[in-house]
């Protein structure tokens, strides 16, 4: 009825707290984007948000993520009684879509990636994705194939690493002192 079941590459549809998420195969993301924009009228791309799930669930759940996961001895990260649902891959990329019309509909289009896997750019579908994808690339290190100008946007051009990744060291900013060679 909603037309979501005909989205190309659809893996699943999730309803949670009144929000609908459709998960699609990453290979068919641009097809899915075109279908949602052209056929279902999702003309407004609000936001693109990527999440790093490294260390998600089990013993390593928590916020003090590192390459080795979480240290249970760090204060305030008490062992969790509830283990969250495992995630299929390391990164999720969520496109928050809005059908801007008299009967508005919101939808989260989601795709999953492992480290080093690129995803197709949607700049040709929604021009606003230009900077949104640059931000995700900058802070999360996800490469958008076909983006016309994929360079850093918030961090300096010569920055190393992608700060929002869970294995990015906290407080790890190199400090240059005067008088240093």
């Amino acid at each position: 009825m909603t037309g979501y079941e005909r989205i190309p590459g659809l893996i699943g549809e999730i309803e949670d707290r009144g929000e609908t998420t459709v998960v699609v195969e990453k290979e068919r993301l641009s097809e899915a984007a075109l279908y949602l924009q052209g056929e279902l009228g999702f003309n407004f791309l609000s936001d693109i948000a990527a999440t790093d799930y490294l260390g998600w669930g089990g013993e390593t759940a928590g916020s003090w993520g590192s390459a080795d996961g979480r240290d249970l001895n760090v204060p305030y990260t008490l062992g969790l009684a509830l283990v969250p649902e495992p995630k299929p891959k390391r990164f999720s990329v969520s496109y928050h879509l809005l059908a801007l019309r008299a009967d508005p509909v919101r939808l989260r289009l989601q795709t999953w990636l492992d480290e080093g896997e690129p995803v197709a750019s949607v700049v040709s579908v929604w021009p606003v994705a230009d900077w949104l994808e640059r931000e995700v690339y900058d802070l999360m290190g996800i490469v958008f194939e076909g983006h016309p100008n994929l360079v850093r946007v918030l961090m300096p051009d010569d920055w190393e690493g992608h700060p929002l990744r869970k294995d990015y060291p906290i407080g790890g900013e190199p400090v240059r002192f005067s008088g240093e060679e």
Partner: peptide, 14 residues
């Protein structure tokens, strides 16, 4: 807009 992810803990995951 605000996008939040929680893992069930006392800190936001994202």
């Amino acid at each position: 807009g605000c996008y939040l992810v929680s893992d069930g803990g006392s800190n936001p995951w994202r």
